[in-house]
Structure formats: structure tokens, C-alpha cells
Amino acid sequence: MNIFRLLGDICHLVAIIVLLLKIWKTRSCAGISGKSQILFALVYTTRYVDLFFTYVSLYNSVMKVIFLASSYATLYLIYVKFKATYDFNHDTFRIEFLLIPCVILSLLITHDYSPVELLWTFSIYLEAVAILPQLFMVSKTGEAETITSHYLFALGAYRALYIVNWIYRYYTESFIDGIAVVAGIIQTILYADFFYLYITKVLKGKDFKLPA
């Protein structure tokens, strides 16, 4: 473990908590893409299947349980409890256009063909694009609640910090996992224009609005 990965995991945890609190406190999931949350739940489910038979550390196991539980709790809030506030008119990204390419790619480019490894590879590719329905929804509505922009910033920062963690591990432990690094860079790049808007607008106290 290194400080970059720890900060990344904390950002990730903060993002998930901020989203849950936003929906719970405002009793509304307006502006939140349920489709992205479905993809995230799928990412954690396929990535953490080893939760039950490989023990890395208490921290590792606890975080996996938290990510799994919170992602399903978020789905419950969006699609069951506050279903009436779910903005399905704007959450229209065709996630099959993400799922199918990720399945194909994970069969073409993977470290090995064991079921756990294939699921892990699939989850890495899917995580890279899981935010697209949310970013698409924000572009359709042209704006996002400030709390939602904080959620997106923390979520984007988590994988950006993981890239720093991979650079650090490359030089200190000769560790490198090309699949995770390439997908992580793509994932972070997808947030680039959002980061720009967030820093130039939200941090200056303005609303998060896309230029018309």
C-alpha cells in the first residue's frame, strides 16, 4: 500500500458516500444516471468475486464489502425507494454498447483465461467507461447539482491517483499491470473536460453548467 493508492481509495469511498447521502438527504436521484450505477455495481460484483476465497488484508476485504454494499444500496434508492424521482427521460445511454465491447475486449486482451481473471479484466474495462451514461446525462441536461459535481470529481480523482500509484509501484516494486494502467488512463481522460469545468466553475462558486 502507498499513499497514492490510499488517497485514491479514500476519494473513491468519499464519492460513493457523497452520492448515497445526496440521494438519501434530498430524497431524490434527479440528475443521477441509474445506468452508470448499474455498471458500477457490475464492476464491483465481477471484480470482487474473489472476496470469498482470497484474503489479501482486512482493509482490502472491508473496502470490497463497503463498495459492494453501497453500490447495491444506491441501486435500491434509485430504482426502488426514490424511483419516482428517477429521470429516465435523460438517462438514455445504451449500456449494451458498453457491455458488449467490454466482454469482447476482455476475451481478446487478458492476462489469462481463468474465470476469475476474465471477470477481473472485464471489470477493469467496464469501469473505464461506466461513467459515460452519467456524463452523457449531464451533457443532455446541460447542468448538474453541485453535490453531483463533487461526486464526479472525487470519482475521477480516485483513478487519477491510482495512475500515480502505478507509476510509484513501477519504480519501487517493479510492479506494472498494463491492462489496469491503460484502462485507468482512458477512464481518467473521460473526466478531463469535466475536471476542467469543475475547477473553472464549481470551485469558483458558480453552478456546474455546460457552455450552451
Binding site: N60, M63, K64, N165
Partner: peptide, 10 residues
């Protein structure tokens, strides 16, 4: 530069 056998990242 290999990748580790065990996945220790979240």
C-alpha cells in the same frame, strides 16, 4: 516488469 500473481488493489 511483471504483474504480481495476487491482485492486491481494489
Amino acid at each position: 516488469k511483471a504483474k504480481p500473481a495476487q491482485k492486491d488493489e481494489l
